[in-house]
Design a binder for these strands. Structure first.
Lengths: 144, 144
DNA sequence: ATATATGCAAACGATTTGCAACTCC
DNA sequence: GGAGTTGCAAATCGTTTGCATATAT
């Protein structure tokens, strides 16, 4: 992967922690700082929350990952696949996140922006509800 | 307004503070807790932040206002005009919020949810960018 | 060697809460 | 009078930061 090169070029050292976090993202599409901590602890990998936050911030700054704020809670991160924007279906039951892309919606947004003489930088479209499984169970666990 | 009746029926007392906050919402479409505190202070009205948060939470619970999380910062509230859902254009320069409604987008979202066997509860579509004025000035003040 | 990373604990900022005093119906 | 409300200060929770130490290149 040339991600590491990209980091090196920015004067960032490749450490075990950084590689481990990158590896996590290839297994888990959506992660937050605490989830990363938990996974590491379960693998007996020592790391502090502060370090996780610092690495996530650094990755975000170098456009390796993208930060989302789905609710009031923790920020959520995902790999920033170049130029592939997508939106999210977020399950309020289990917290699962489903991604989708819809070109028509993208275009409608640009139209709306134009009508308002608005220069679009980015956008987030989050649809909250219940996924198939939770629709049936209808547990009332809060989204996490 | 029958909002007060709605509150009374829910066993909620109508206090000066609550009326004042309701009044504020008819002047300002979008407010956050701190902004409310500031406005009250400028009018020499004594109120504590805790009370503001409690009132906002209570109003939200009774569907009088809606809570939005536009950025990482403070939560933003607006009157919940019954069944009139709308989305937002958010200026990253001056923080201005422009509302819009687009039926086509709404329908496309329902289609997408259906395809994913997802039961939609609600959604938020936020378009971030610069409004006409800020597009020209391009101040880099953070959105607030 | 030295610039960058890390851990720890303390600091932060928004929001919440316990509790005693207060106000509306 | 009693249920619901308020203010205050302390508590929470996610996240950030200062500083001294450790590590990558």
């Amino acid at each position: 992967m040339d991600l590491t090169k990209q980091l090196k070029d920015a004067g960032i050292k490749i450490t075990q922690h950084k590689l481990a976090i990158l590896a996590l993202f290839s297994e888990h599409k959506h992660l937050d700082a605490f989830k990363i901590l938990t996974i590491f602890q379960s693998k007996n990998i020592d790391i502090s929350l502060a370090t996780i936050y610092r690495i996530l911030a650094s990755f975000e700054e170098h456009n390796i990952i993208t930060k989302h704020n789905f609710g009031n809670e923790h920020a959520n991160y995902e790999l920033a696949v170049a130029n592939e924007h997508h939106d999210h279906l977020i399950c309020m039951g289990c917290g699962k996140v489903i991604e989708f892309v819809n070109q028509e919606i993208e275009e409608l947004q640009l139209q709306i922006a134009k009508q308002n003489q608005f220069e679009v930088h980015n956008h987030t479209l989050n649809i909250y509800g219940f996924c198939v499984e939770c629709k049936i169970l209808k547990t009332s666990k809060p989204i996490n």
